[in-house]
Write a protein that binds this DNA or RNA. Structure first.
Length: 217
DNA sequence: GACCAGGCACATC
DNA sequence: GATGTGCATGGT
């Protein structure tokens, strides 16, 4: 089987085992973008606590959050960890939304994908995974999200060389798959869900993992 | 108490 | 250009 065919077959296997994901967890494009920043190297459960702090105070809008005292914002997002750092990163992104979109995140959709991706990546604190998460899940633009689970999965299955970087791994998926927002969305979600369930950092591969049959291909 | 979780920027060599 | 380090909470 070609690598592209294997990748598609792995997708089908994960989908059959887990069912559709309905990602990203978040009600609005702005909420999704905030979650993408807060979840950097952090358990999603902690992010939910921070999001709840913002939501219950009705602060979940770009204009409102930028007007907040940074120290207050930091206290609200504290459960998400790295809260001082993430306060700076969030504010960098909020200023970007103000300058580039007059606080209307969805207006960013008017930009061509590659151009917008470069602009978002230029925001300090937004790296490739966060940028792609925002573009794919908040703005529904066709870019593939690579994360630690994706690296681990592809390495363990011998589908990517050791030390492959973000850009190369993203290209590997985008070359193998048709350009399809819904497919990219579901694929990344399934990789994360599969990783959480069966493929933690130090765990061996579990026989029950839907991807077990693909080992060694 | 150690390890882990949907990264990123920056320092240093 | 590669490698190391700081950032921090909460669950297992």
């Amino acid at each position: 089987m070609s690598r592209a065919a294997t990748i598609l077959a792995m997708y089908e296997a994960m989908l059959a085992a887990l069912g559709p994901s309905r990602w990203w967890p978040g009600d609005t494009p702005f909420e999704i973008a905030v979650g993408a920043i807060l979840t950097q190297n952090t358990n999603w459960g902690n992010v939910e606590k921070a999001m709840a702090n913002l939501k219950v105070r009705d602060l979940l809008s770009a204009r409102t959050m930028l007007a907040l005292d940074p120290a207050e914002l930091a206290e609200l997002i504290r459960p998400a960890g790295y809260y001082n750092l993430k306060t700076v990163r969030l504010r960098n992104f909020l200023n970007f939304l103000k300058d580039e979109a007059e606080f209307e995140i969805e207006s960013l959709k008017a930009h061509p994908l590659d151009e917008l991706r470069d602009k978002v990546l230029a925001v300090s604190g937004i790296g490739p995974e966060t940028a792609d998460s925002i573009l794919l899940y908040a703005l529904e633009m066709p870019t593939f999200v690579v994360d630690a689970y994706t690296h681990r999965l592809m390495r363990r299955h011998g589908l990517a060389f050791e030390g492959i970087d973000y850009h190369e791994l993203r290209a590997l998926f985008m070359d193998a798959l048709p350009e399809d927002v819904a497919l990219y969305n579901e694929f990344h979600a399934l990789i994360v869900r599969t990783g959480k369930e069966w493929c933690r950092k130090q765990a061996g591969l579990c026989a029950a993992c839907p991807l077990q049959p693909f080992l060694g291909q």
